[in-house]
Design a protein around this nucleic acid. Structure first.
Lengths: 206, 206, 206, 206
DNA sequence: GATGAATGAGCATTCATTCAT
DNA sequence: AATGAATGAATGCTCATTCAT
């Protein structure tokens, strides 16, 4: 039993991995189940044993990615003190994660929209989640008097959008530089936008 | 001849109008040439007389939209003095244009990606153009001493991204409020991000 | 215009003809659209231009067949006088029609059921129509005093069923004799069942 | 061993029961092995342990049903004297059996055809068997002088067909009445068709 | 210029059957 | 005996594109 369950989970994993590969190579619509199957070293039927349809695979991939980002961000957050430092660390971690997984970034920021009306709601939710995370910390910063009161909801969206665009441009760049290198300047802009003029960057490694 | 040319141009117009309608109703992939044809009150063959293929229609639509935005932005720009005021006016005009054409916004910000790998390059260019417009004015503001030197290229992307996200969230909102209402706060954020603390909004009408 | 319409109608005809061929060769479910297409010397897309789906082709075929039978039956009916003679002529015509088109009989009596729940209602209607035709004439025979009063609704079903089974057995027979040869005896049985002991057969040719 | 054999037989029973349920719910083609398995509270593998394939399950069900009908009919037959009384009793028992098992009737009279070319032969046999049972008794009635000589083979088919159609119409009726109520009138028709004008109905219970 | 009929490659999905455990 | 994971052939349907009229 145990063994079989583990194998089944592993197979799902492999399918989702393959899906990432194929979706980011072809885009959602042009990705054929056949190709995902062979990339996952299984058969088309195998795919349908583990997932009800193509959409479900994409959704699983989306959720896995969102979870990964969220977990890393939260980890970074708990490792720091003070709302702005935490936010700072979280954004850096997001940048770094995408920097290390360009195809994942492409999937998350580009393919996910346009994959069909059905995904728009889910993507809106994911965007909203991240924007809210930012909003929450800005609210706390306001509460602690670290920054002046402001429309934190809007700021959450704006920060997320700024980050988003920087990463998107990097994804679509034919000869991309190092994504992480954009962060320091972006950080200054974002902090200034809420009225923080100086603050040291996070001391997280590398 | 003259008359026929005009008629032909009018027909193209009607097709592109129909395309906007259908693409934003269904998304690029799910929009059928049949539906565009009937929306344009012509036949499938008629479409292919005026455009070589589906992609070309979409591209024409994209370019028409980009041109519209650019023209309006430039108009606003020439109506103002000083790089920051001009930028301010341009962004406001973009916001207002999208506010008045939600389906166009959806098309431009959501469908355009995911319409297929072939469009990504074009979209990247369009994004870049707008980011560069911002960068240009920020550069000028730096040159005039209105703001402190900064990474204006990055700031261009960030500003555009912030704007983008605010509009996107509005497009995907089931019960959207008035998009224009977000602008004043966004404006403050953006200006602050480049170190400008106070500045009156543009006096553009309504 | 005229020419094109005619051609279009001819094509539909050809498709329905091909469908009869293929459905009665393979049965409804095992008939592939591909095979119907090639039998009709057109392409799969062509099929779908003229019919919305497989079911619609089958239904068109069913209706065409039912219409053919009805028309021939009515023709025979108007050529005779007296309800029993008319009925007699109608049944004979049905028998003869099936005798001349074994695959059509197979389709109509065997494939049509079992082609899927969706067809059952239609088939029930068709059966009912024929049974009612019989019932109507029996009613008239009663009204004219040619036969004693009886449950004509039930008799309609029973007569139709008897006919049906005789034809079905012939269709499924590996070495079938001449279907028409069964008619005289069947005729005697049916007439006797409503109390008519003697009556000459119809004088319709061959 | 004994116990295990019994268990195995019971399992087969359960599978065939489940098959009846599912086949008459969905029709042969649309019935999935998965659904039969879960209805039988076993697994797909379990099905294939007891039967070589889907067809075999259907055949087993068909044969079980035919056997049931035959046994009940024979029972009724031996309980009566005289060929016509026996026939009468047999038909009544068939009617009553179907009346009590509508899904079984649907399966036997409707799904069984159209389940695929492979079943046609078997169904033809089953029909023939019942027709022959009728023929046999009519032959005996002729031999005993109870009825005048006639084409008893044809009459067998016709009787069976009449019965068949009455039951089929009832199966396909959305708001069916009591099937048994049709029998007395049908009986009169059938008997008259072979020249018997009066005869009391069978005295079989209820 | 315009039309509508035709094409055919492409694809998601289903499902009976197999088989290692 | 039983399970459930895996297989892969089969198929209805879509749709951009072509082209004779």
């Amino acid at each position: 039993m145990k063994v079989e369950q583990e194998r089944s989970i592993a197979r799902r994993q492999r399918i989702v991995d393959a899906a990432l590969e194929v979706f980011s190579r072809r885009g959602y619509r042009d990705a054929a189940m056949d190709e995902i199957a062979s990339e996952a070293e299984t058969s088309k039927g195998g795919l349908y044993f583990h997932f009800p349809n193509k959409q479900a695979i994409f959704l699983a991939l989306l959720d896995r990615t969102a979870r990964l980002l969220r977990e890393r961000a939260e980890e970074a957050i708990t490792a720091h003190d003070g709302p702005l430092a935490r936010l700072d660390a979280a954004l850096l971690v997001v940048i770094r994660t995408f920097a290390g997984h360009r195809s994942l970034a492409r999937l998350f920021l580009i393919e996910a929209f346009g994959a069909g009306r059905e995904f728009n709601r889910r993507m809106a939710e994911i965007h909203a989640e991240f924007a809210e995370l930012i909003t929450r910390h800005l609210d706390e910063a306001v509460a602690q008097g670290a920054i002046q009161p402001l429309d934190t909801k809007l700021a959450g969206k704006a920060w997320f959008g700024a980050l988003n665009e920087v990463v998107t441009a990097w994804v679509l760049d034919d000869e991309p530089g190092r994504l992480e290198d954009s962060y320091p300047a972006l950080r200054v802009l974002l902090l200034r936008s809420v009225g923080v003029l100086e603050q040291e960057g996070p001391r997280t490694g590398v």
